[in-house]
Amino acid sequence: MKTMLVSVLLLLVGGVAAPAETLQIEGSTTVGPIADAFAGYFKTVYPDLQITVNQTGSGDGAAALIDGRCDIADMSRFMKADEFAKAVGKGVLPVAHVVAMDGVCVVLHPSNPVSALTKAQIRDIYAGKITNWSQVGGVNALIVAISRDTSSGTYETFETLVMAGQKMGPGVEYVNSNPQAQARVKTTQGAIGYVGLGFVDSSVKAVKVDQILPTRQTITSGTYPVARPLFMFTNGYPKLGSMVHKFCTFYLTEKGQELVEAKGFVPLTDY
């Protein structure tokens, strides 16, 4: 019994003495795929490294960073003032790393003849003031407005950049992920939805917003009106050369750019 106890203790001590390096990443479902792709690459380069990427939501990521539950918080929006204050109160100093750009594209069913909308028209559709496609130059069909859930960063960006203080109408439907939003628009003729540029493919049609089509160029140059930077937040600037530092600056490498592009986001570098 005693020898068993001792050996267990030894094991525990040994475990503490030589910990496997871990990287805990939490947050946005929009930035999550980038972090996941980076993590996959890091695992092949550093086989001893243990990386966990949780995709819960920007707010959860901020909360996890504030509570010290993660090394990196993925966020598709900047930290809110109260989150920042709370973090500083707990001795956490959030530092933002912009890893990529994302365009929130307004998408329609491919059969819909409408191909351009103004921000004001989109706002009125989501506010419930415009309910029929014929009011914006389309066919006579009811509009099914599909929004992301209110806890997603995409919703937040859309609400700030497009809704501008207007309330969502009661008939707006909510889905809880980009693929679900895409799937709903793909299968519903009267639908309008919004997703990240990475989720626009031939099955849905991205419309021009204020005469600008969302593309890589229009998004990075800032001409497309519904675009936003994607963040990774760390507690202070990470120690140079540390794993956190390598991870947060990985987007600057050629491989990093390739992975960001592969996920459908817009990289900040141009190799």
Binding site: T56, G57, D60, K80, T150, S151, N176
Partner: peptide, 20 residues
Amino acid sequence: QSIRTMTATIAGEMGEAPDI
């Protein structure tokens, strides 16, 4: 018509509801 339940609301919104 679309409707929304209590359970869906809690599950969908708890993640971003600040604890104040």
